[in-house]
Design a binder for these strands. Structure first.
Lengths: 207, 207
DNA sequence: TCATCTAGATTGACTGGTCAATCAACCGGT
DNA sequence: ACCGGTTGATTGACCAGTCAATCTAGATGA
């Protein structure tokens, strides 16, 4: 049943590693990082305790792997968006959309990443601060571009917008995670439009 | 030397309790809640280990006391602002100002509250969610009022703005705490104006 | 004035439990 | 008979919370 394991060389071995990661997502999402024991991960994965340490140096390394895998996708998507020819507003919308879709398609993983890493500034947040910051910078650069080409006003600092934009989106995700707000498909789409509309258009009524 | 201890009855006793709280602020801010041992608090306060448990039921109770004390001030300030006759924009500015000033005057305490409670949705954040939410609601109500009297557009949900507004401000505080952004007096004032300008005015250039 | 009493404040050694990480042994396929 | 994958009992460290003992200062009374 297991394939030839052509290039990677290992047949079902990699599956166990993957099973551990998937299990970790579930357990971290359910209990939070601090409250989960390594044995919880092993149990959820249907694997012996020690095997976790065969594939990962530590409990922290498991979390780091989850974060890095997904965050690099986010950053790559951001780079793609930045390279495009769209208007700044459409670019911001695309970034917001990508994050929100990530949540839509894998809420547990995104919950873990946002709650346990991005917003946990005292533990993982500090460790991965450079990568997190990179995401903010992408937004800031899009804003700066909009300022250069005249679509955006120049009296609001682009870096400042980058942080605010992410702050708002992360807060929304938190709201969905903890059921402060309904998490339906319409909410997701509505939210993407609203963040962008709020940041770009502002609350003030125009006449 | 100690006063008569008229009403409260206890002379220097209360001081020790206070000393423990102040020490907890410093230690929590320095190491984070999870990484601080109760003995760290006692040492910092210059007090015996057991005394912490004389005044507080648990380590968690110390944190809760810190949060509740300060958060009730924030909520009270919010109520005051809401009751005023100012324009919605000025009210939002006042709320942002109060939070930012809290940080300016007691950065350690605000660091603890924002990082360890407000944004730690899996531990204290969950416990104090109702109170935290109350703060978001105040902003939402101010926005809703602005929508009713015609100064704000009505196609952006007021609750949504409440969360985004706080999300942005908390992100700014995090930026200062972890030195992503310079934390000078000019920055503080500039930030207050920029959040409000961004949320109300929006990025788009007006012609 | 001073001895005694009392209640709360203060001390820190100790207990009980938890859990991350290790490791020696045990597969099963080649 | 070899080797990576796999097992789970064991170890060692850590730490929140308990508790019995000690201290202090004001109150009472002779």
């Amino acid at each position: 049943m297991p394939e030839t394991g052509t290039e990677t060389g290992r047949p079902a071995a990699i599956d166990k590693r993957r099973a551990i990661l998937e299990a970790a997502i579930l357990v971290f999402a359910r209990q939070g990082y601090h409250a989960t024991r390594v044995s919880d991960i092993a149990d959820e994965a249907g694997v012996a305790y020690g095997l976790v340490y065969h594939y990962f140096r530590s409990k922290e390394a498991v979390m780091t792997e989850l974060f890095t895998e997904r965050w690099s996708l986010l950053l790559a998507a951001g780079e793609d968006v930045m390279a495009g020819e769209e208007s700044p507003r459409v670019k911001l919308s695309a970034i917001a959309g990508f994050i929100i879709d990530s949540y839509r398609h894998n809420p547990e993983l995104m919950k873990v990443i946002i709650i346990e890493v991005t917003r946990a500034a005292n533990s993982f947040g500090r460790t991965h601060l450079p990568q997190i910051r990179e995401a903010y910078d992408q937004v800031a650069q899009i804003v700066a571009q909009g300022q250069r080409d005249g679509t955006f006003r120049t009296d609001i600092d682009a870096d400042f917008v980058g942080m605010s934009f992410y702050g708002a989106i992360e807060q929304l995700l938190s709201g969905w995670v903890f059921e402060l707000m309904p998490a339906t498909d319409e909410e997701f789409d509505g939210a993407r439009e609203m963040v962008v509309e709020l940041i770009c258009g502002g609350l003030d009524r125009r006449d």
